[in-house]
Structures are given as C-alpha cells and as structure tokens.
C-alpha cells in the first residue's frame, strides 16, 4: 500500500462517526463588506502606521510626483507600466532598467510598480504579477519599493480583497516595509525585503 493510501485510510478511520459539520452550516456572520467613506484616507493612515512613506495625490499629479521621487536615481520598472507614468519617470530618473535580471536588480536604488488591490483596513497592497507589477523578485531584491495605488483598486477589508483576487497568479501581500520583532519584541523595519516602502495613492 502506498503512503498516500495509508494516510488516507488512517484519516477515514479517525473521523468515522465523528460529528458532521456541514459546509452549509459554517457560520459566516462576520463582515464581508466594511462600510468606509474614505478608502484612500484610511489606506493612507494604515500604511503610514507601518512606518511606510505615503503620498496622497490627485490622479493628474501622479506622474509628476513619481518623476520627483525618482529624480537622478537608478530605477527598475516592470513590463507594462502605464505609459503616463513611464514617460515622465524615464525622463527624470538617471537610469531606468526595464524588467532587469536578478544581478542588475541588486544594483538599483528603487523599483516602481503598480498593484492589483489595496486593503484600506489593514494598510496592505497586493501585487499579482500582472502588467506594471512584474515578477515577484522585482519588488523583493531592491531596497526601496515605490508603489502606485489607484483609487479604484482600494477595497475596505480582507474579504473584499480575496473576492477580487485570483490565485491563478502568484500574489504578494505587502503591509509596510520588511520588519522583524525577533529581538525583545522591538519592531525594527528593514531586514531582507525592501527597507523602504513608499506608496503613492492616486485619488
């Protein structure tokens, strides 16, 4: 008998006669939608709580803001970054590397991406490796992650985010910069992931 069959057999014997908990009877009385009349404001507050840098700017000012933030820097960008950001950024930055290889990634000052969804209540941005977000390592190896969130991408709570996302592509949920509390429970920002997270929220 294979181990697979053996383990499955043990499970079946173990639960024989155990009380049923029908799927339909799982109580889901928690909130699946959180009322919030200022998603961008809440997101900004909650992201800042993690000691990330937050800019809330009108949509029309995003490109100019980004240009200011990358000025004179060596920047990595993913494929598919919206043209209205890519243009001004490539003008302002010293160097722009499009979807660079790993060894080059370790040499950039920052990476600029968009995101798939942002969760206001938890101050989380979610990347799904789609256009303008790139491979997972793109936002991991550089020490500074610059991320643009459009107003329409913000949801209030975790359930709304799960409903919008698909597990077909790899997802990275990011809540503030890399951090650890492993030493005396003192929170320190910046271990292995980007030590600076900078979020531009377009409203």
């Amino acid at each position: 008998m294979s181990t697979r069959e053996e383990v499955l057999g043990r499970i079946r014997r173990a639960v024989e006669g155990a009380p049923e908990v029908p799927e339909a009877e799982i109580p889901r009385a928690y909130r699946t939608e959180v009322p919030c009349d200022d998603l961008a404001g809440l997101l900004a507050e909650r992201v800042a709580d993690y000691r990330a840098i937050v800019h809330v700017v009108p949509s029309a000012r995003v490109a100019a803001t980004l240009a200011g933030l990358v000025e004179g820097k060596r920047i990595a960008v993913p494929d598919g970054l919206p043209a209205e950001w890519a243009g001004p950024v490539s003008q302002a930055a010293a160097t722009v590397l499009a979807d660079p290889a790993r060894d080059e990634l370790d040499t950039v000052d920052a990476v600029l991406t968009g995101c798939a969804v942002a969760v206001a209540v938890t101050g989380t941005i979610v990347l799904d490796a789609g256009p303008g977000q790139g491979r997972r390592e793109l936002t991991l190896v550089p020490d500074h992650h610059l991320c643009v969130v459009r107003a329409g991408q913000i949801v209030a709570g975790v359930p709304e985010a799960i409903a919008r996302l698909s597990p077909d592509s790899p997802l990275t949920w990011i809540s503030g910069p890399s951090a650890t509390s492993d030493i005396e429970l003192d929170r320190v920002e910046g271990v292995h992931g980007p030590r600076t997270l900078e979020v531009v929220i377009a409203v």
């Binding site: 699946t32 799960i162 790899p170 997802l171 949920w173 990011i174 809540s175 890399s178 951090a179």
Partner: peptide, 27 residues
C-alpha cells in the same frame, strides 16, 4: 474564500498587527 477569515485571525493573534508585512501565495 476561507482565507478571508484566516488572514484576519492569524496576523492579529500572532504578531498583534493588522496584517503581517508579507504574505506570499502561489499555486
């Protein structure tokens, strides 16, 4: 969908944060 429950329960119970810095999901 079940993740909508556990991604709220775990970080708050564990590190005492609204959400932990990184969650990776892959298929």
């Amino acid at each position: 969908r079940d993740l909508e429950v556990f991604l709220q329960l775990l970080p708050r119970s564990s590190t005492g944060e609204r959400m932990n810095p990184y969650t990776s999901m892959w298929t």
